[in-house]
Design a protein around this nucleic acid. Structure first.
Length: 853
RNA sequence: GCGGGCGUGAUGGAAUGGUAGACAUACCAGACUUAAAAUCUGUUGGGGCGUAGCCCCGUGUGGGUUCGAGUCCCACCGCCCGCACCA
């Protein structure tokens, strides 16, 4: 072979790795372990460039760790349950199981040519009964520990599809599929008791030093800890059982400014009133309407209904506050009731203005004015504010100090107590869906809700082996409609009973898969010895879109699995380091149809800004690749055209890994050319002279050691784009070098090693071509010789008053005083000084000289 | 509204407080070629002058700290992301 042929060498070296079995992870050996994991894919059927980028980054880490003497675990699996499979079955017949396993086979076939260092013997899909059966066992253990419970909850209910919708699936108050007006409905659902761990999940964030600060902050905000006062207003003439209303406030310092009390339409008091008063009932129905999305909330008008009830102010019993039912008060935060302080809260201000309620300021700016308020004054924490109508006289208080003083005062006077609340709510896991992990419980008329016996696990989803076809053509949960699947016997009393037909949220599946990878075929959820050895995940890599839910749920599960004895204590935080990579983007090519509607075109159909028939396209700036905008490039076609190494090299170059990278045809072309060039340079080493000047040899080897040093630092710090830039520079040096054969061979072998994490096939081929020992994949990573990193003579810039004016060449270890002398002797410095003495000379060894005049 | 991040050539982007623009793309010029492709070489932040060279300006805007600021601090402008009737 005289030319670089990706197609030939990639298949060849993948087979060589397979034969050598170098990626199979075993517990033997005394090397330190390293567990690298990328977020596993949903089997949609096609891999996309985002997958390529994600898995390439993980592969760089894994291969680098292998080369640096680690025992590496690098597994892959499939997040295989979920709605798309059911939707596909609904749309075109077939069965979600067949659809999913077909997609997995397709995607695996697309992924293997990438040459990833994956231990495929550990592969599993979350829809394998072997996996979800263990998940059911885990669920039962969590149930026994009280980590899961049932309760009534308000959900978005689509009356046409007859299913619960997630908030993201409610658009303009309507179901995303059916278009039907979404109802708020109370259903009995299963919940994980994650809110009990709110404090711990929050505090432990501090220890996650190798997580992006952004992700930690997002989780912190999501958990939403707040400190406030909880107390009750006494009610005048409240209905039976309602002589008081509990409220929670983070601003007790504004209590003297209260002018109304508001309760949620779902508040028990509102529900009592609703029974006897049709006007209240009508209002509550109206107020409960609309989704819970941000968009819906934005549009909803603030509505209140005066119940006629009056609440007594705890510090001024002569002051009576009207009690309103208001549509903006949420039942599931705080107590579902608030007091309104219009002077210091914008939302309360708007409400008070609409309903003509008094606005009573309690703080005033230091520079007070007599003008009436036009908007609420929210005292900024940094600004001095004065506590005017205070409990503690005229004392000056600001921010938290005012809040704390108010809580203290209230507690001393027997009005409520300081409490800490969290925004984080328990995690509802019930889904009225077929394609998910069945919740392994049984409903018995005499025994109630009974856990299934472990020996009966897995509770398997019905297929249609027994000739009972499952109908996905109609809305609702097919498990509910199945003629026989629900029928079972009560595990407790043996009487006929029915199965729970709800399945688990797919986030459950992905909350512990990382633990299962350590022993994917164990007869229990985990094998403690394996988990003890392999956990934690040393490096986790995935998209920022999972910053909150998946990562928070996984942190909860790691704790729950420890409580239930399925993970060792050390795995309380499952991911030691997290890296969130950016997306792959592409320009969008658009034309318009006869009616002016946009028509999108695939990149492969556009060249030079024109379609094949010469029609010019409008180019819309780069955005995330999406099928609807057709700005997608199929990895398979890139691999076919250029090879996997080119795709790998390109997604890593150009942009920092945490940022988006724009896929361009010219960039892919350039990457491919470069790899061919490297191959050619290496193949031409044989033509180099046997002997060359010692200077040329040394210059090349010095450059080689600098490249080793910088590429190593780049790979270790996720600076893959910088490492690649350095490899380009080193390749240029090698190409131009006049060094002899021995030095060039050494340099080329090292170049192959440094490239091997990114372009493993090319590296392997060069390694073999130049008679490297064994496989480059398992060759020890090269070490930079510190002595070779510093040149004998260095160039020092000379600044005059901080501006670069000249440079000198001096030995690298020349003492400061000598450097000073050389600098002062320079023509430019003499000219600038014009006979005067410098005021100051700063010499930073190896860096710079600054002469201050 | 609350929280966070980012602004550097035509473009993607480099730069532990120490020579701004590494590396790459694009463009232009040259070599090789009948020609093209491929390959190789070179130029490219702006302005100026007495043009083998030298000078001035330059990292969103305005200030500040420092011998020295793309980098640190303050204010402003613009863009992006997360959360949100959260009491």
């Amino acid at each position: 072979m005289s030319r670089y042929s990706a197609a030939e060498i990639e298949a060849k070296w993948q087979q060589a790795w397979d034969r050598a079995g170098i990626f199979k992870a075993t517990r033997e050996g005394d090397k330190p372990k390293y567990y690298v994991l990328e977020m596993f894919p949903y089997p949609s059927g096609r891999i996309h460039m985002g997958h390529v980028r994600n898995y390439t980054m993980g592969d760089v880490v894994a291969r680098y760790k292998i080369a640096t003497g680690h025992n590496v675990l690098h597994p892959m699996g499939w997040d295989a349950f979920g709605m798309p499979a059911e939707n596909a079955a609904m749309a075109s017949g077939g069965h979600p199981k067949d659809w999913t396993y077909g997609n997995i086979a397709d995607m695996r076939a697309q992924m293997k040519p990438l040459g990833l260092s994956i231990d495929w013997s550990r592969e599993f899909a979350t829809c394998d009964p072997e996996y979800y059966g263990q998940q059911q066992a885990l669920f039962l253990d969590m149930l026994a520990e009280g980590l899961v419970y049932r309760k009534n909850a308000v959900v978005n209910w689509d009356p046409v599809d007859m299913t619960v919708l997630a908030n993201e699936q409610v658009i303009d108050g309507k179901g995303w599929r059916s278009g039907a007006e979404v109802e708020r409905r109370e259903l009995t659902q299963w919940f994980f008791r994650i809110s009990d761990m709110a404090e711990e999940l929050l505090e432990a964030l501090d220890g996650l030093e190798n997580w992006p600060a952004k992700v930690r902050l997002m989780q912190e905000n999501w958990i939403g800890k707040s400190r406030g006062l909880q107390f009750a207003f006494g009610l005048n003439e409240g209905p039976d059982g309602h002589d008081r209303v509990e409220v929670y406030t983070t601003r007790p310092d504004t209590l003297m400014g209260a002018s109304f009390v508001g309760i949620s339409p779902d508040h028990p008091l509102a529900k009592t009133l609703e029974r006897d008063n049709p006007d209240v009932a009508a209002f509550c129905v109206e107020a409960r309407k609309g989704g819970t999305t941000a968009e819906a909330i934005e549009k909803a008008e603030k509505m209140g209904f005066d119940t006629g009830l009056r609440a007594r102010h705890p510090f001024d019993t002569s002051c009576e506050l009207p009690v309103y039912i208001a549509n903006f008060i949420l039942m599931d935060y705080g107590t579902g009731a608030i007091f309104g302080c219009p002077a210091h809260d914008q939302r309360d201000f708007e409400f008070a203005t609409k309903y003509g309620l008094p606005i009573i300021p309690v703080f005033e700016p230091v520079e007070a004015t007599d003008e009436p308020l036009t908007e609420a004054f929210v005292p900024p924490k940094s600004e001095k504010t004065r506590f005017v109508r205070g409990f503690a006289g005229d004392e000056v208080q600001t921010g938290d100090a005012a809040v704390n003083a108010a809580i203290e005062f209230c507690e001393q006077n027997g009005v409520g107590q300081g409490v800490t609340k969290f925004r984080l709510r328990d995690w509802g896991l019930s889904r009225q869906r077929y394609w998910g992990c069945p919740i392994p419980v049984v409903h018995c008329e005499t025994c109630g809700v009974v856990p299934e016996k472990k020996e009966n696990l897995p509770v398997q989803l019905p297929y249609d082996e027994d000739g009972t076809p499952i109908d996905f053509g109609v809305p609702g949960n097919p498990l509910d409609r199945h003629p026989t699947w629900r029928d079972c016997t009560c595990p407790a009393c043996g009487a006929p009973a029915t199965r729970e037909t709800d399945t688990m949220d797919t986030f459950v599946d992905s909350s512990w898969y990382y633990a299962r990878f350590t022993a994917p075929h164990a007869a229990t959820p985990t094998d403690l010895a394996e988990a003890e050895y392999w956990m934690n995940v040393d490096q986790y890599i995935g998209g920022i879109e999972h910053a909150i839910l998946h990562l928070l749920y996984s942190r909860f599960f790691a704790r729950a699995m420890q409580i239930t004895g399925h993970l060792p204590k050390k795995a309380i935080e499952p991911f030691n380091a997290l890296f969130t990579q950016g997306m792959v983007t592409h320009e969008i090519y658009q034309t318009s149809d006869a009616k002016g509607r946009p028509v999108y075109h695939l990149p492969e159909d556009v060249s030079d800004g024109k379609l094949a028939d010469g029609t010019p396209v409008e180019i819309i700036p780069s955005a995330k690749m999406s099928k609807s905008k057709k700005n997608v490039v199929d990895p398979a076609s890139i691999i076919a055209a250029y090879g996997a190494d080119t795709a790998r090299w390109f997604v890593l170059s150009d942009s920092p890994p945490e940022r988006d990278v724009e896929w361009t045809a010219s960039g892919a072309e350039a990457a491919s050319k470069h790899l061919a060039r490297v191959w050619r340079i290496a193949s031409e080493v044989a033509n180099a002279p046997e002997t060359a000047t010692p200077e040329a040899d040394e210059a090349l080897l010095r450059e080689m050691h600098k490249a080793i040093d910088e590429v190593t630092k780049g790979v270790e710090s996720f600076g893959f784009n910088a490492a690649i830039a350095r490899l380009y520079a080193f390749t240029n040096t090698l190409a131009r070098s006049t060094a002899g054969k021995a030095a060039k061979t050494e340099a080329s072998l090292t170049l192959a090693q440094l490239m091997s994490p990114m372009t493993p096939h090319l590296a392997e081929d060069i390694w073999a071509m130049l008679a490297g020992t064994g496989l480059v994949a398992t060759a020890p990573w090269p070490l930079a010789d510190p002595a070779m990193l510093v040149d004998e003579n260095i160039t020092l810039p000379i600044q005059i008053n901080g501006k670069r004016r000249a440079e000198i060449s001096v030995p690298h270890d020349m003492p400061k005083s000598e450097v000073e002398k050389v600098a002062l002797a320079h023509d430019a410095v003499i000219k600038a000084l014009d006979g005067a003495q410098p005021r100051k000379i700063i010499v930073v060894p190896g860096r710079i000289v600054n002469v201050v005049i």
